[in-house]
């Protein structure tokens, strides 16, 4: 899957899951604040990532993810690792 396709897929499920307009999901926007994530939302985020992409979320993965671009990079790099495996 190309990077652009992955980003589009991410934005689609984020918009659906967290009921947010696509125009708010800017690359340098803060992920937690924009989506207004609380602990329950992180559960949904994990479930949605693992349902849509072929990798398991590890506890240490989200350290350092602040913006949407950080999140895109995280999913892209893990998806590609899985593809190569």
């Amino acid at each position: 899957m190309e990077n652009a396709e992955i980003i589009e897929k991410i934005n689609t499920f984020l918009a659906e899951e967290f009921e947010i307009d696509a125009d708010k999901m800017l690359p340098d926007a803060n992920l937690k604040e924009t989506l207004d994530l609380d602990s329950l939302d992180y559960i949904d985020l994990v479930v949605v990532i693992e349902s849509n992409f072929p990798f398991k979320v590890k506890p240490e993965d989200f350290v350092g993810i602040e913006t949407f671009q950080d999140f895109y990079n995280y999913v892209i790099s893990n998806s590609k690792v899985k593809e190569l495996a």
Partner: peptide, 28 residues
């Protein structure tokens, strides 16, 4: 930092059991 959510997910994914009290909450 919500890291516990991911640790719980990892434990469950590894077919482990997670025991947690479900009667207390914090503000927010």
């Amino acid at each position: 930092d919500m890291s516990h959510i991911f640790k719980i997910n990892e434990a469950l994914s590894n077919n482990e059991l997670v025991c947690m009290p479900a009667d207390r909450f914090m503000e927010g």
